[in-house]
Amino acid sequence: MLAAYAARISPDDPLSALEIGERPDPQVPDGWTRVRLRAAALNHHDVWSLRGVGLSADRLPMILGCDGAGVTDDGREVILHSVIASPGWSGDETLDPRRSLLSELYDGTCAEQVVLPSSNLVPKPEGMSWATAGSLSTAWLTAYRMLFSNAGVSPGDTVLVQGAGGGVATALVQLGSAAGLRMWVTSRDAERGQRAVALGADRAFASGERLPERVSAVMESVGAATWSHSVNSLNPGGTIVICGATSGDAPARAELTKIFFKQLRVVGSTMGTIGELRRLVDLVDRQGISPVIDAELALAEARDGFARVAAGESFGKIVLTMGA
């Protein structure tokens, strides 16, 4: 089968570690299901894997990809939940210290076929496009958990999204605005900020710009570069939900005094449960939300998509398509 995979590790030149070519069809263990993929979206996780973050050389070659949707051997159209719990784990799978994502211990979704535990499948709603279904498993699930499980906000509240344009950021804007939240974004690029406004954000600000009023929650994925701004932007009792730190995890100021004096909450958030994925799929379907697609490429053209993600050029999701 055709697949896009990490053939080696290259911290400084991740695209040089990417190969697109034939890999053996997967074997199907007991309790697992084969899915013939129709769509899979790329994430920054895939580029980090090529750099060797979370993927060691002894697991190579490794097929990349966490997002995906396709058809089982018995004809069911499904969306994949890519968080794989360890054997015997029960409860919230994101809290399992031995959990993994597809493409870390098990081959991922940038291929014509993938196998995963049968319990990790969510029915695809009839009429939902493959591009939408194939975009929900990672960045959109991360955004859903941040907003609806961890932020503690209600319709009418104002939420600040640090950064605009990435998969998580665009998902936050689309989901938040659909749920009646007032979504603000920051961006170093004014054009990307305005595109977020066109997508549903109420206002866009330059990175670090003083806001006209404080907000109820901040969605933080940038890290060191925006940390002080995030803390300073919150109302007393507000919440920072952090899902990543693309600019580094060591800010110049930890802002501990402001955090305890203003009684702020700092909540870590990673991916989501299969229950949250079901609720996300239902919300997207009922509200008719269409994830922003930056580009839709055939699997054989995956290198172009990886290059856009690695360069930070994409706005929304890059989707690879397979099959009929």
Rank of each mutant, 00 (worst) to 15 (best):
I242T: 15
W227S: 08
R286W: 07
D46Y: 13
S86E: 09
C110M: 15
G166Q: 04
S56W: 00
N235K: 15
A225I: 04
G238M: 07
V215L: 11
A225S: 11
W184Y: 13
M322H: 07
L141T: 00
V28N: 01
A190V: 14
S187A: 12
R182P: 01
E104I: 11
C110N: 08
M183N: 00
S230N: 02
D107L: 02
P24A: 11
A298E: 15
L60E: 04
S207T: 15
A307V: 03
I242D: 01
T138E: 12
A245I: 01
A204Y: 09
D58T: 12
T186A: 11
V266W: 04
G165I: 12
L256V: 13
G52F: 15
A295L: 12
G200M: 12
G323T: 05
P87D: 11
I259W: 02
S129P: 06
G68D: 09
R34I: 09
L199D: 07
E126I: 08
G288A: 03
R8C: 12
G70A: 02
D304S: 14
S135L: 09
I274W: 10
G237P: 06
T186G: 07
A252F: 11
L60Y: 06
F306T: 03
P97Q: 07
E255T: 05
V309C: 01
G134Y: 12
Q194C: 12
Q162F: 00
T33G: 06
T170W: 12
M271S: 10
R36I: 03
T142N: 00
E301Q: 10
T273S: 15
N120R: 08
E255R: 10
G166F: 12
S86V: 11
R286F: 08
A39L: 07
G156T: 08
S230L: 11
L181Q: 01
A250Q: 14
A151E: 04
R182E: 15
F260W: 14
N150M: 14
V218I: 01
P251N: 07
G166K: 03
V281R: 00
P97I: 13
L95A: 14
A151M: 03
V28C: 09
Q194S: 15
L160N: 01
Q263H: 13
A179R: 13
S118E: 10
A295I: 08
A311T: 06
A133F: 02
